[in-house]
Simulated assay, not measured.
Amino acid sequence: MRRPPLPALLGLGLLATALTGTAAATTIYECTTADGRVIYQDTPCSAGQQQRTMQVADAPAAPRPPSPPAPASAPRPAAPPPTRAPSVPSAPLPLMYTCVRATDGKSYLSDNGNPPPYQAPYGVLGAGQLPLSEVYGPDRGGAGIAAPEANRGRVSSGLVANNYVWVQDQCRELDVEETCQALQDAYDENEHKLGNAFKSQRPPLEKREAQLQTQLANCGD
């Protein structure tokens, strides 16, 4: 009895692998019919046939293609910096001075520490209140002087009071605390005016308000 060649057996083994989908050895049945024909199959032989089994190794499974690499995750954008609440810009504290008026001794604030001199009536300074005999000496208007001599070139109190002399106010620079207090007082006064102003009067007051706010920003709480 002639048997199929080995390639045929391997083909049957591959066929069995395709049918079963397994990677193990496959059982092949060799069946001999009554008339002497040899049949190979993967199921047991029919009744009345001679049966012989053999194990045919399956062909190795083809390796699976490697999985594509996972795409690299895009870098996360950097978080934006936290936003700060808008604040009032600051401006350097101005130089401020407190000055004493030469004519009446009253104080006032100024941004000029060296105010220009000005003319004031001599009598406003208090000199006109003195007796003329003390202002101009005992040789004028004193007892024992003849009337014609006393009247010659006599200076009246009105003439002295209306005479003008040069005077200048005295000033000193404020320290930081005093400057901040002066700015706060000016801001409060400006706010009061702004609250009572008509619409046409508001622009200069609003401009002054913004200026004082920037200066007060350096004064802290």
Rank of each mutant, 00 (worst) to 15 (best):
P131W: 00
G144T: 05
E177Q: 13
R154S: 03
A47S: 13
V38R: 07
E30S: 13
L212D: 01
V165E: 01
G113Q: 01
P82D: 11
A143V: 07
Y122L: 07
D221L: 10
T17L: 12
T33M: 12
G123D: 00
P121F: 01
G153W: 07
G141K: 00
G195D: 05
A147N: 04
T17A: 15
P89A: 14
L93A: 03
T179K: 01
K106C: 04
P60L: 10
Y108G: 05
A210W: 02
D104M: 09
L12K: 13
A91P: 02
Y122M: 10
T22W: 07
L174Q: 03
T83F: 06
P89W: 11
L10V: 13
R3Y: 12
A70T: 14
D35Q: 15
V124R: 06
Y40F: 15
R84Q: 15
P89F: 10
L15N: 09
T214I: 05
V167Q: 01
L194Q: 01
Q168P: 03
N190S: 05
S107Y: 12
S73V: 15
R52V: 15
S107W: 09
G21K: 07
V176W: 02
D185W: 02
L212R: 01
P4N: 12
L95M: 06
S90M: 11
N114P: 01
A74S: 10
R152K: 10
T179A: 05
W166I: 07
P121Q: 06
S110I: 02
A18K: 15
V165N: 02
T17Q: 15
Y136S: 02
K207Y: 00
G113V: 04
L6G: 12
Y164W: 09
C171Q: 03
S90Q: 13
L174K: 02
Q213N: 09
Q41H: 12
V167F: 00
A24K: 14
A210M: 09
A78Q: 12
L6S: 13
N112A: 04
D175M: 08
L9Q: 08
L130E: 02
E177Y: 06
A70E: 12
V167K: 01
R101L: 08
P5G: 15
P121W: 01
E209S: 06
P116S: 06
Q168N: 03
Q49P: 07
Y136R: 04
D175T: 08
D221K: 15
S73W: 08
P44C: 10
T98F: 09
L125W: 06
D185C: 02
A24M: 12
N190V: 04
A79S: 14
T20Y: 14
A18M: 14
P116G: 05
P4T: 09
T26S: 15
Q213G: 07
I145Y: 00
P69Y: 08
P81A: 15
D185G: 06
D35R: 14
R37T: 13
V56I: 15
L212F: 06
P77M: 08
R2Y: 12
S133W: 00
L95I: 04
L93N: 06
N218A: 14
Y164A: 09
Q119P: 05
P63I: 07
A182D: 05
E209V: 00
T22L: 14
E209G: 02
Y122D: 04
G141Q: 03
Y122Q: 09
T214C: 01
L194D: 01
L216D: 00
P44H: 11
P131A: 04
Q201V: 00
G11Q: 14
A16W: 08
